[in-house]
Design a binder for these strands. Sequence first.
DNA 1: CTGTTAGCGCTTTCAC
DNA 2: GTGAAAGCGCTAACAG
Lengths: 309, 309
Amino acid sequence: MATINDIAKKTGYAKSTISRYLNSSGYVSATAQRIIQQAIDELDYHPNSIARSLSNGATNKIGVVVPHVEHAYFLETIRGLMDAAVSAKAEMVLLPSAYDPKLEKRYLNQLRDKDFDSLIFTSRQTPLAEIAGYRKYGNIICMEDASAYGLSSVYVRRENGFRELFKWLKRKQIRHLALIFSRNTQASPTYRQAMASMLKVMPTIDYKTFGGVNSYQDAYKAVDELVSGNFDCILADSDDVAAYYLMKLPLLLERVPLVVSHESQLSGKLLHIPSVNENLYELGQRLFAAAVSNHQVNIEIPSKFLPRD
Amino acid sequence: MATINDIAKKTGYAKSTISRYLNSSGYVSATAQRIIQQAIDELDYHPNSIARSLSNGATNKIGVVVPHVEHAYFLETIRGLMDAAVSAKAEMVLLPSAYDPKLEKRYLNQLRDKDFDSLIFTSRQTPLAEIAGYRKYGNIICMEDASAYGLSSVYVRRENGFRELFKWLKRKQIRHLALIFSRNTQASPTYRQAMASMLKVMPTIDYKTFGGVNSYQDAYKAVDELVSGNFDCILADSDDVAAYYLMKLPLLLERVPLVVSHESQLSGKLLHIPSVNENLYELGQRLFAAAVSNHQVNIEIPSKFLPRD
DNA sequence: CTGTTAGCGCTTTCAC
DNA sequence: GTGAAAGCGCTAACAG
């Protein structure tokens, strides 16, 4: 592990000159360039990035808090984020929270301690007010509107998509609706917005919500109740979950309920499941851009209902 | 951002004493402890982890090279890895490669440049011999047997599972077998081992392999050929893919082929798809342990065939 | 039990 | 064009 000092000794040039050469910051004579480069090659020298970080005060790393990787919602976002990070030659530290405030706090503290330059919350349990207190330590981006707290925000605008979806259901004369969520609590923006849209468009609808269904693999949890509940429509929160019901329930019921998803994936396309496209891959890329930007941003990505009939 | 220097000035104690207190390395009087802690609280001091890393020569971060996150194989592994990292208070940097040697090289260089302490290859394109050249820069762990190259190895021993699987297929008198893979090239250990086991147990079998199928969402690619090929068994490389065929093909064929998976997930359990359980979550945890260990290890996780009939 | 000093490896100002 | 010196913030060795 040669250091810049070794190069200096070997070449007779000062560290500062070598640093100039390495970072193309300032003039270095052609001769010096040649000699220095040769020494670099011979000693197999490569700058130590920890030392660089210490001197620059930046790590080139961004932390991404994600409750888990079971749901396509987070996976799609992560994919967009990853690809953007690779292009920008930045690194992405995956920080699983399981919605545990203790873990979320740990990650906020790591931002404070300079473990990364910025922190993205794809979802969270900790109140925004508390998160905002860490803004001074680095850039923080939320996947919901947190502009009131001075935080950058990049998120799906679900209103349009949901409104169209529920209007469509109304036209289909749906009366008994099952809604499947990852979290069916007020803490989830998805849940809040879905319920708000639904009650606005179909105020008298008879419905029941289910929580804790994150993936295709969790979908079975609600099967019994779905079968006995006599629903005429099931609204799932990802195409994979919807696909599961679409294929499983016909085996158990004579009458197949309408299955709809509020998140578009390829599986839904293939099976022609109506769904709300949330453009999460793009959202991931925007999240990254927001993380490395210096300005506070507030970006809404519109969602769109795709009836597919 | 207060530094240890500020605490020193405020309290009158030397930096070393404060460092001792912070890291519980050496004696510090009760009085000093009280005074120092008070200053820490008042100034809201927190150690800068970049500086720590520079001084310690370690980052507490491990890099994880993964081709993509589309396949349950990698996701399950990542889950195990993530959970282990959280428990150990280490950080995991996600490094997507898309099997691109340029990217893989970039990550190897980052190991050399101290961006992380160790590097895990869940899969790779770069020859092991070349990877081995980076061993001097940090711990490298492969998800295949790389012990011949002096690299730590943690991987699934597929022989047992595959052998039982193909014996079972032989008993079922399978004659026309379709094998679906993520990669159907010699570069993939899964592919090599599956083919070897198959040809040993059923040397005269008529078969065809398909590549490029990573997920439930890719499964449709092979549908046309599967339908026209008149296969009596389809061996998919994840339960999700298998589930897709299990549900999609009955709609297209009069005779439903036997569907089998070589990777066990919950979806397979639910649909009673025979499969090979590869214990990837556990494998992920072992990978992490190997990454933070000082010894070179070679750990085989046995796979097991689950007929589920 | 505490202080002094040197060191981790790079960047940046200032001077010539 | 190049060099000397200080600084990033912490840890460790040595001394008392």
